[in-house]
Simulated scan of single mutants.
Amino acid sequence: MLQPIVARVIGALTGFASSFAIVIAGLRASGASEQQAASGLLILCLAQAILAMVFSWRYRMPLSFSWSTPGAAMLIASEGVTGDFSAAVGAFIVCGVLLALTGLWPALGRAMTAIPTPLASAMLAGILFPMCLAPITAAVDLPMFALPVVLVWLVLYRLAPRWAVPAAMVVTVIVVGIAAGDQWADGASLLPQFSLVLPTLDPAVIVSLGVPLYIVTMAGQNVPGFAVLTTFGYPAPPVAPILIGSGLISAAGAFVGGHVNNLAALSAAIMAGPDAHPDRDKRWVATFSGGAAYILLGLGAGAATAVVAAAPPVLITAAAGLALFGAFIAALVSAFGETQHRLAAAVTFLVVVSGVVIVGIGSAFWGLIAGGVVMAWLMGRRPSIA
């Protein structure tokens, strides 16, 4: 039983190192203070630990949970939509409620999956595009800081791909530490603590952040997560309980700054495969022990937030961009794989990348609308106006 425990502890460490900076940067871009961002990271760690331990034990399946990394990237891309974190928290709560409703009301799940894959993928690619440009920008603006990070990532991507992103994050932390000296933790609270945020329900922010966050989380995390389990020969996973549980805990966690938790996709492939344990029936132990590891990692949320706050923003965005290259490539391939829908996907992608804000609603929403209208027109159907 030692193999799955070791595998998941390593997986938790690499997963945390690969994307914690993205989460913190996303929360800060939504208007969170340093303390609120640390609180959000803490609750996200604890929530995914609880979900993984409870569901893995209950169903004896390797059910891995994580925060929504594409969702955090979307928050970074949507910076400026709101500077009021209470409004962002209101959008996070709506996203969690929508996830829970998807489990309770199958019709909502069918409506979400009815969004054409090329459009959903193009939206995700458009959200990730500015972040994937950041390593280039940082290498030009801050070559002494950014080039070591990029070079370590590139070398390990060739020699040990699984360790490329965590190693790049470690180098980023080292570079930040060297640049900030012993002042990096000044004024920061390194002890774990929650910061209560009373939500504001702003319709424009809900449409700009809450709804796209729900779509990205379902399309980019939950749907692939369910597919991974099926690929490795597991029986149909308990879809409704997972969506209801993750949705409710996300809505509750939003009150202390978390954006959303969901079924893991990338780490699920590791935990559900033979690397976790040769015996498929014992792989659930890996996700259970990984949940325990995330409780300990959550205790370091304050220190992690202080490191990110001490870094030049472009350097953190660059490190996050390296972590998202794989997701960006996969989204592009999915968006432009079907010849007949490439124009609609391109329109969606370009509108999202443009960053336009119309009547207070951000470009992720308008990209889907524009792409949907183009797709409907080219397929010979008159676009309906709601």
Rank of each mutant, 00 (worst) to 15 (best):
M1E: 03
V9G: 00
L13R: 07
L13T: 15
A29C: 09
A32S: 11
S33T: 15
E34D: 09
Q36R: 10
Q36M: 11
A38M: 05
G40N: 09
I43N: 03
Q48A: 10
A49I: 10
A49F: 05
A49H: 04
M53R: 11
M53P: 08
M53Y: 05
Y59L: 11
M61V: 14
S66Y: 02
A72T: 05
M74A: 12
G83S: 11
G83H: 06
D84T: 15
A87V: 10
A87G: 06
G90Y: 05
F92I: 15
C95A: 15
C95L: 11
T102K: 08
G103K: 11
G103T: 12
L104N: 06
T113G: 01
I115F: 05
P116Q: 08
P116H: 06
P116N: 08
P118V: 14
L119W: 03
G126F: 00
L128N: 02
L128Y: 01
F129L: 04
P130Q: 02
A134K: 12
L142I: 14
M144T: 12
F145S: 15
V149I: 15
V155N: 06
Y157Q: 15
Y157E: 08
A160W: 09
W163F: 14
P166D: 04
P166A: 10
M169C: 14
V170P: 03
T172W: 01
I174F: 07
W184K: 12
A185G: 10
G187F: 05
A188H: 12
P192I: 12
P192S: 10
F194K: 10
P199E: 08
T200Y: 00
D202A: 13
A204P: 03
S208G: 11
G210N: 03
G210C: 01
Y214G: 08
Y214F: 15
T217G: 11
A219V: 07
Q221P: 05
N222A: 05
F226V: 15
T231C: 01
G233K: 09
V239G: 05
N261M: 08
N261W: 00
L266M: 13
A272D: 01
R280D: 06
K282M: 09
W284F: 14
S289Y: 01
G290W: 02
G290N: 07
G300I: 13
V307C: 11
V308Q: 00
A310H: 07
G321D: 00
L324A: 09
A327F: 04
A327Q: 10
A331F: 02
L332V: 13
V333M: 08
T339G: 02
Q340T: 14
A345W: 01
V347M: 04
L368S: 02
A370K: 10
G372K: 08
A376S: 15
R381D: 03
